[in-house]
């Protein structure tokens, strides 16, 4: 059974995302929430890391947290799926298990 990982800290402030990617298994999904959404932006110092290191992991980002921070969807790395709260719940049920990277 695969795992849903949530990351809620900015990658510029915390190593939560990096550690998450180092421990996620193939087929897992990483959902970026709260300040974690900054990791989804194109052209940052971490966007290369995020994308290159795990092509076997899916990435999602919570739309409400993007909107709250004034981040337009056009600024996201290609291939990151934006989900709403209902989509968040679906991800939780699809994966069965959730691990929070705080």
């Amino acid at each position: 059974m695969s795992m849903l990982h949530t990351v809620n800290k900015s990658p510029f402030e915390s190593n939560g995302l990096r550690s998450c990617l180092a421990h996620a298994s193939k087929g897992d999904t990483v959902l970026l929430i709260e300040d974690g959404v900054y990791a989804a932006l194109k052209g940052t110092a971490v966007s290369g890391d995020l994308w290159r290191c795990r092509i076997d992991v899916k990435f999602c980002v919570l739309g409400a947290d993007l909107a709250a921070r004034g981040l337009d969807k056009g600024r996201l790395i290609d291939g990151i799926r934006v989900v709403d709260y209902g989509g968040f719940v679906d991800l939780v049920t699809e994966h069965g298990r959730t691990q929070a990277w705080l």
Partner: peptide, 12 residues
Amino acid sequence: AKVMAEQDVILS
């Protein structure tokens, strides 16, 4: 990573 994948519940 494997140990994590084998768990029923993970609390962080």
